[in-house]
Amino acid sequence: MPIQTLPTGQVAWQRRTMPARLARWFGWLLGVLLVVQSWQVMNADTIWEFVYDAPAQAGDLLVRMWPPRWSVLDQLWRPLWDTLNMATLGTALGVVLGVPVAFLAARTTTPSATILRPIALLVIVASRSINSLIWALLLVTVMGPGVLAGIIAIALRSIGFIGKLLYEALEETDANQVEAITATGASAAQRIAFGFIPQIMPTFAGISVYRWDINIRESTVLGLVGAGGIGLQLNASVSRLAWPEVTVMFAAILCTVAVSEWVSARVRAAII
């Protein structure tokens, strides 16, 4: 009750009630305690001598990375191409599997709110809670190293991303447009085709391109666990302490990501 009548008869208004203010005060107190506690945990496992040394070490590493060994570029085109394919095919597979999951998960379109919707939400949470690097690790163990493991790892991670964002878009659609389509005597499938799909089309395109963009970045590291692509090469060079090669790979990855960001920005602008 932020509004209260004072004994003088004046009506006072405050933003929060007394208990609400106390609760907030304790919330802040807990936050401060957490920071202090975390600081102690961090200090416990840190060897500060190494940290004082860090700038010198970093400088040393940079010196060893320079000049770049550009000749290694000839061996990089193929893994780079693999990386791009992995990201693109993985995204495509993720879209194909994620879109139906989104329609099952959205309250507005699900055919069964009691059975199918929880299952779809579980699929989304499961996919999202595991990083694609971990998916790749599991898949390489199960089906051996290679690009295919990377594609499937990326797809499995993308299902949750696309499913979640798309089902939220489906729940935010304008109900009037759907009502009008229902009133014409449209079937359930036609309601989705005419009432929902036109409304979510820009969001869908945006989500897919954005995920593709993320997947290119993620697929560059999947090679570290044996799932193919440029990460494999990177891992090999780091193991051999061939730092000048690593520099070239960083540059190649940077260029690829920059190009993919440019492409996705253009596509999104064209659609919306």
Partner: peptide, 27 residues
């Protein structure tokens, strides 16, 4: 039963023709 709405309730991202033809969805 044809229905007409206050806020028009057209499918905003479809063309005039598609919106009109959506009246035939029942058929």
């Amino acid at each position: 039963m044809g229905m007409i709405f206050q806020e028009y309730a057209l499918v905003e991202r479809l063309t005039v023709m598609e919106n009109v033809l959506s009246g035939r969805l029942g058929y």
